[in-house]
Design a protein around this nucleic acid. Structure first.
Lengths: 130, 130
DNA sequence: CTTAAATATGTTATATTATAACAAACGTTA
DNA sequence: TAACGTTTGTTATAATATAACATATTTAAG
């Protein structure tokens, strides 16, 4: 019984914009894009972003302070994220690799803690930019 | 012939503070700590931080916008970084694991790009906080 | 139904993080 | 010592993010 969590108005607006985008979007760039829709304040964007992240609909690219839609046809909650980032054209791709994910999910420091979540960012130059 | 790059005055001041710290430091917290030493402006901190990162003396924890000293007795240039981050006490540990590093350095997307660098952040609750 | 609780919204203000731009000093090294 | 690159100092401002509070809407329980 997959009670597919419905989105609020602002959450839907923000998600739509992020989905349509070709690359990662910054919060204020989202804001400028939705002012015609009656959203005027950063708070409104950040609140929607927070919820969308919680729901696993989007991810934050930490090294860029930008947001992308989740590619994995709606992962539940993002415990294991990996991205490839082109340092030239700034294109970001979500990496879905079962082996990688399993390897990292199973990785635990000897004396240390058990991990709940990880985020991995790869950097390089993509094929197009070479 | 290891020409061990010498640090400038500000670079040395900033590095010393980061090394003494128990956890990751934020740029403005560094700034407040060095105002007695005649450093007054964010620019001066950020410039030192940038150079120290280039040299591999420190790393930026992207998810926290904070900086830690490199633990690996001065890694050359940080092409492969991994950290464990406690979500409770916020302690950050650099992970030096040859296998992990090798695994990830060898990871290349099939059709995609060859990676030059990666950064991995694990999150959980550390032993002390459990 | 209808009241209470939780969630979402709108809004103003402000905090935090980071860079731009320019002038002066310092340090190589040729 | 002149020319170049690097570092410094400084003022200003850009970019990213949260606090706090009032109101509205949705959900769930009695």
């Amino acid at each position: 019984m997959t009670l597919l969590q419905s989105l609020s108005k602002n959450q839907q607006i923000v998600l739509d914009i992020i989905k349509k985008a070709k690359g990662p979007l910054k919060a204020y760039s989202i804001l400028f894009n939705v002012q015609k829709k009656g959203i005027n304040a950063p708070q409104q964007i950040y609140r929607a972003l927070d919820k969308l992240i919680e729901m696993g609909k989007i991810h934050k690219i930490e090294s860029k302070n930008a947001f992308v839609a989740c590619k994995s046809s709606d992962c539940e909650i993002s415990k294991a994220t990996a991205f490839s980032i082109c340092e030239s054209c700034e294109v970001v791709d979500e990496i879905s690799d079962a082996k990688l994910s399993k390897y990292l999910s199973g990785f635990n420091r000897k004396k240390g803690m058990k991990f709940k979540r990880f985020n991995l960012e790869f950097f390089g130059i993509c094929k197009k930019c070479k």
